[in-house]
Design a protein around this nucleic acid. Structure first.
Length: 430
RNA sequence: GGAGAGAUGGCUGAGUGGUCGAAAGCGGCGGUCUUGAAAACCGUUGACCUGCAAGGGUCCGGGGGUUCGAACCCCUCUCUCUCCGCCA
């Protein structure tokens, strides 16, 4: 949620910043409602002040033995007027809040405007692997030949967009998760295992609701009392301090959470995204940081570096991409993606998205800290980054590290999690 | 799943219709004392909205109601605890 004052003070400037996202906004209605509300608030508060004053006098008059029936009748009338105006006021407030909740975050001003096409790679690590003397296989074929994934039975159990990690595949996925978590713990992150079913407020606070209510799986009913399966651990981790005020000295806070991510991904299936590139359930370790206002840029760089270092330790070729304003998700001011090279597809695929939401999420769920100097409360800044989406990393590993004999070399850092195993070998044909 | 109890400030906990935004204790902050610290003593100490300010308004788990007036009465939801049952 962005601050209403920003819009009130300079609607034109804010409008232009939204334009860089490709988002046309018109604040006319919002500003009118806001104006109405401010006038009405003033009126209602004056009336309430009157009522409070007179009501306080009633017991005094009674004690003096005076007749209060006339005063009481007057206050009854005033009370009716107040509740009428109060009703209008709460309707206004609800409308204003809804509009505000639907507005995306303001993109940072240094971002390229426009959509995906304006994303800019700003760093590249390693090189595209060359496959001498053999034609490289796709991760789908590799996973099948190596017995890592059972796509057919995954679909049998759950439907399209589901798969089963089997044997070495499960171990490799688990090794990745363990490796990432160990790295985070080493860096002082608190490891978290969250409930996978979250309440509505989590979606609202993270910024996914009300807009994307249809993109998650609902458990009981799809409304404010229902629960949904988290689409990312961020949705939970970013709600930890909802309604709380922390001491400045408690920040920054660093969390790393592992959860499966459940997403409907309605209509997004394409032939090129078979395999584990896009599914209804995938594994991800998510990093979330809470910082003070002045430390969030620093934290952002830190999280980007962290995501990069994980991929680099695995030895994977990737590019770091600075997203254009329009490609950043709605809650975010800025986003950098780490994209892994997938040889069979001839493209880079995101395995980490690091973003700074600044105070957007904190405003939605009122997460504040007390500034040690001023003593005032400020909204925290929240940041998040995948560290990493293992289900995207595994395809890159098998494709980038495949050998002529059909085997795959396991990255060194993962071997200790796999009993020292160095290679994944093709299963003998039955 | 059944029965009961409860939710009050950073914490413990009093308050059951009228100067209660809320006693008391702890904690925090400031001070006195001390070479310094501790102890003791004194003072101070919730959040939000609005306003230049003075002030005003709102908040005692959430929502609704009764009343001139609600932390307190009524309804409802959520959560917590205790006991019983069931169970991976």
């Amino acid at each position: 949620m962005i601050a209403l004052e920003l819009i009130r003070e300079n609607p034109e400037k804010i409008r232009k910043r939204y334009l860089s996202r490709g988002k046309e906004v018109d604040f006319t209605e919002l500003l009118e409602l806001d104006k109405k509300r401010r006038v009405l608030t003033r009126q209602v508060e004056d009336m309430k002040a009157e009522r409070n004053k007179v009501s306080a006098e009633v017991p005094v008059l009674k004690k003096q033995g005076q007749d209060v029936s006339q005063v009481v009748a007057q206050m009854k009338k005033l009370g009716d007027q107040i509740s009428e105006k109060d009703k209008v006021l709460s309707e206004l407030t609800e409308k204003i809040n809804y509009i505000l909740l639907c507005l995306p975050n303001l993109p940072d001003e240094d971002l390229a405007s426009g959509g995906k096409e304006n994303n800019k790679p700003i760093y590249t690590f390693g090189k595209k692997p060359e496959f001498k003397g053999f034609t490289p296989k796709s991760h789908i074929d590799l996973c099948r030949d190596l017995g890592l994934i059972d796509y057919e039975r995954g679909a049998k159990l759950s439907g399209n967009g589901a798969w089963i990690y089997t044997g070495d595949g499960a171990r490799l996925e688990w090794a990745l998760l363990s490796f990432f978590i160990d790295e985070h713990v080493k860096d002082g992150f608190t490891f978290m295992l969250l409930p996978h079913m979250l309440n509505y407020e989590c979606g609202l606070g993270a910024g996914q609701f009300p807009k994307f209510e249809d993109e998650v799986y609902w458990i009981d009913q799809k409304d404010r009392n229902g629960r949904f399966l988290l689409p990312t651990a961020e949705t939970g981790l970013v709600n930890l301090y909802r309604g709380e005020i922390l001491k400045e000295s408690e920040l920054p806070k660093k969390f790393a959470g592992y959860t499966p991510c459940y997403r409907r991904e309605a209509g997004s299936y394409r032939a090129e995204e078979r395999g584990m590139i896009r599914g209804h359930q995938f594994n991800k370790v998510e990093m979330v940081m809470y910082t003070t206002r002045d430390k969030s840029d620093e934290a952002f760089d830190y999280l980007v570096k962290k995501a990069q270092s994980l991929v680099e330790k695995l030895g994977l070729h990737y590019q770091l991409v600075k997203l254009a304003a329009g490609d950043c998700s709605d809650s975010m001011c800025r986003t950098y993606d780490v994209e892994l090279w997938i040889p069979s597809m001839g493209i880079y695929k995101e395995c980490s998205s690091v973003s700074n939401a600044r105070d957007y999420q904190a405003r939605r769920s009122s997460m504040k800290y007390r500034d040690s100097k001023t003593g005032k409360t400020e909204f925290m800044h929240t940041l998040n980054g995948s560290g990493l989406a293992t289900s995207r990393v595994l395809p890159a590993i098998v494709e980038q590290f495949q050998n002529a004999d059909g085997s795959v070399t396991i990255p060194e850092v993962l071997r200790k999690y796999m009993g020292g195993q160095e290679k994944l070998l093709p299963k003998p044909k039955a």
